[in-house]
Amino acid sequence: MSIQHFRVALIPFFAAFCLPVFAHPETLVKVKDAEDQLGARVGYIELDLNSGKILESFRPEERFPMMSTFKVLLCGAVLSRVDAGQEQLGRRIHYSQNDLVEYSPVTEKHLTDGMTVRELCSAAITMSDNTAANLLLTTIGGPKELTAFLHNMGDHVTRLDRWEPELNEAIPNDERDTTMPAAMATTLRKLLTGELLTLASRQQLIDWMEADKVAGPLLRSALPAGWFIADKSGAGERGSRGIIAALGPDGKPSRIVVIYTTGSQATMDERNRQIAEIGASLIKHW
């Protein structure tokens, strides 16, 4: 067993022997301040990774656009098919120029040779490549099948209805392509620590998230040296922004954090800054 596999296998073990965790309302004060600064709703939840206990939450059962955070769930569904012998990570998928959609920095470079399922998941999570996500959605049967996968996990809230990039439209009061912070946090925890996926697939999923290259201005910008984070960000229309993450000190994750916002007129930089400040408060009061 590799060191990384050992780390993920012992996530519940280490967490069980940690000192009790206590909620700190100071972080919620910052979440509410972010709402004021952005002029928009902000949803927040913080779960203990081992027990699933909610440590703090704000608007945990209000719907927010998922945006690209759905790509972690998508690759979880792909990995479940791999575990069941219905898919192979090494299978190569070929596609054409007509398949390319807006923001496809990886797939646009491989029109000639195609990409493997493993490479597509890596591109979808680490670079948020939209064509990679659409190609992977095709392998599982489309958005409705991802929703069905989530329902089978016990998540009857999260739903995907459309493809990239239309799913980022974020129309107010439109339930399409949305989740709730509580539902997303619980589902992410199941994917990373539950028995739904094999140990190898859980490790692969967290490795992809740990290698995320496009979430630097968010929670990662607030992390002290030595902290662990595996995350996936999302951005959408109407001032929408979000991030889902597993993080913790001492090089291992111990909490799940989900943050979503929508309806702001603020710039992307300002949305990023507010999420980073929430992260800084979380870490300060850990």
Rank of each mutant, 00 (worst) to 15 (best):
T178M: 08
L135D: 09
I283Y: 15
A266P: 07
A124G: 12
R271V: 12
A215G: 05
A132G: 08
R92Y: 12
K232F: 01
I93D: 01
T178D: 08
V72N: 12
S51V: 01
T131I: 11
V157W: 06
A211G: 04
A132T: 05
D48N: 07
A170F: 14
F70D: 12
T261Y: 13
E46N: 13
R63I: 06
I229A: 06
E210C: 04
V101M: 11
L28F: 10
N134M: 11
G279H: 04
A246P: 07
P224K: 15
V117F: 03
I140R: 10
I256Y: 03
A182K: 11
H94G: 07
H110K: 15
A280E: 09
S201I: 11
T193G: 09
T178Y: 15
Q37P: 06
G226T: 03
M66I: 03
P224V: 07
T178E: 14
G226D: 10
M209E: 11
K232C: 15
M268W: 02
H285A: 03
L197M: 12
D231S: 11
P172Q: 12
E237P: 09
G279N: 02
A222M: 03
E270D: 14
A230E: 15
Q204T: 04
G194M: 11
R273A: 11
G263Q: 15
A225N: 13
E102D: 02
V106D: 15
E169C: 14
L136C: 08
A276M: 08
V82T: 00
I45M: 00
Y260P: 01
A124C: 11
K53R: 11
T27Q: 04
L28P: 13
E61H: 12
P105L: 15
A84Y: 04
A245S: 10
G234D: 01
T158Q: 04
L135V: 07
L146N: 15
A148Q: 07
L55S: 09
E46F: 11
T198H: 08
K109V: 11
P105F: 04
D174L: 03
R273E: 06
N134T: 05
H156F: 10
T186C: 10
G226R: 03
A276F: 10
E145C: 05
K190H: 15
D161P: 06
R81C: 10
T193I: 09
R271L: 09
V29N: 08
A123L: 15
E166L: 11
T147S: 09
E62S: 00
T131E: 07
E210K: 09
D231M: 08
K252D: 02
A185F: 02
R81D: 08
L100R: 12
P105E: 14
A200F: 08
I45K: 00
W227P: 01
C75S: 12
N173F: 14
D174N: 01
A183I: 10
R273H: 10
K213W: 08
A266I: 03
L100M: 02
G242N: 01
V106N: 15
L218E: 12
K213H: 07
P181S: 04
L38I: 00
L89Q: 02
Y44V: 03
L100Y: 11
Q88R: 12
E26P: 15
D83G: 03
K30R: 15
L100I: 08
A246H: 04
D269H: 12
G251Q: 14
T138A: 06
L188R: 13
P253Y: 01
S128W: 11
G226N: 07
C121D: 00
E210M: 09
L137A: 15
Q86A: 06
E56D: 10
I93N: 02
D269C: 06
L219Y: 02
K30H: 15
R91T: 07
E164V: 01
L47Q: 13
F228G: 02
R241V: 05
T138F: 09
I278D: 10
L73F: 10
L197R: 00
V29D: 08
T267S: 11
I125W: 00
A132M: 02
D33W: 00
S57W: 12
P253W: 10
D48A: 09
D212W: 13
H285V: 06
W227Y: 09
E277S: 12
R220L: 05
H151W: 14
P172A: 10
N134S: 07
G52M: 10
E195I: 02
R59W: 06
Q274T: 12
G141K: 00
L223W: 10
Q86V: 12
G52I: 11
S80L: 05
R159P: 00
D161I: 03
L160C: 08
D129I: 01
D269Q: 13
F228A: 04
G248S: 05
Q37H: 11
T139E: 07
E102W: 03
A246Y: 04
P105H: 02
K284H: 06
K252C: 03
R238Y: 12
L55D: 12
D212T: 15
D212V: 13
R91L: 06
K109Q: 02
D113A: 00
T198R: 08
A148L: 14
L38E: 01
I206L: 10
E175Y: 09
A170E: 09
A132N: 06
A230T: 09
L47H: 09
V42P: 05
S240A: 04
D48H: 13
V29H: 05
I140C: 12
T131P: 05
L197Q: 08
L111D: 11
A133W: 00
P143R: 06
I140N: 03
V106G: 14
P105C: 12
P249M: 13
K71Y: 00
P181E: 02
A215Y: 09
T186P: 09
M115G: 02
D212P: 14
R271F: 02
L223V: 10
T186L: 11
P217N: 12
A276V: 11
P60L: 07
L73C: 11
G141Y: 15
E62P: 00
D269E: 08
Q274G: 12
E210Y: 15
D207P: 05
M66E: 01
H151M: 08
A34S: 08
K53Q: 09
R59P: 04
V157H: 02
E237V: 11
V82G: 00
A84I: 05
L137G: 13
R202A: 09
M180L: 07
D99W: 06
G248H: 07
R220T: 04
I278E: 14
Q37R: 12
E175N: 10
S128Q: 02
A183P: 09
L111K: 09
V78E: 09
E237T: 09
Y44Q: 01
G154P: 08
T112P: 12
H94A: 09
L79I: 00
E119V: 12
L205F: 03
A133Y: 03
K32I: 02
G263D: 10
P249F: 06
E87I: 08
Q203M: 07
A230Q: 13
A276K: 11
G154N: 07
P25Y: 10
L191M: 13
S96K: 15
T261K: 15
A230H: 12
V31D: 05
L247P: 10
A132W: 03
S281V: 12
D129C: 00
V214I: 15
M268G: 03
G194H: 00
V42Y: 06
R118W: 13
S221E: 08
I275G: 14
K232S: 14
F70K: 14
A34R: 00
E175Q: 13
S201F: 09
Q265T: 11
R273N: 06
T69I: 13
E270V: 09
V157D: 08
L192F: 02
E56F: 06
G251K: 09
A246M: 08
E56R: 11
G76A: 03
T267P: 10
P253A: 10
E46A: 15
A280F: 13
E108N: 00
M115K: 15
D161V: 06
V257T: 06
G90H: 03
D161F: 04
A246W: 03
A170S: 12
A185S: 02
T126Q: 00
G194T: 12
G239T: 08
A170Y: 05
A84D: 14
D269W: 07
G279L: 05
A200T: 13
K109N: 06
G236N: 08
D33E: 03
A132C: 10
H94Q: 14
E169P: 08
G85Q: 15
T158P: 08
A225I: 03
A34I: 11
G279E: 13
G142Y: 07
H110W: 01
E175S: 11
T27P: 03
G234L: 04
L150Q: 08
M67S: 14
T116H: 06
L137P: 15
V214C: 14
K144L: 11
N50R: 05
S264W: 07
F149G: 06
L197F: 06
V258M: 04
W286S: 03
A40K: 14
L197P: 08
H285E: 06
Q265D: 03
A84E: 15
Q88G: 13
L137N: 11
T178S: 12
G194L: 13
L137V: 03
S264K: 13
P172I: 09
T112A: 13
R63N: 11
V257H: 03
R220D: 07
I93Q: 02
L192W: 10
T126M: 00
C121Q: 03
A245R: 03
E277A: 12
S51M: 02
R59T: 11
P224Q: 03
P253C: 03
V101P: 08
N50A: 12
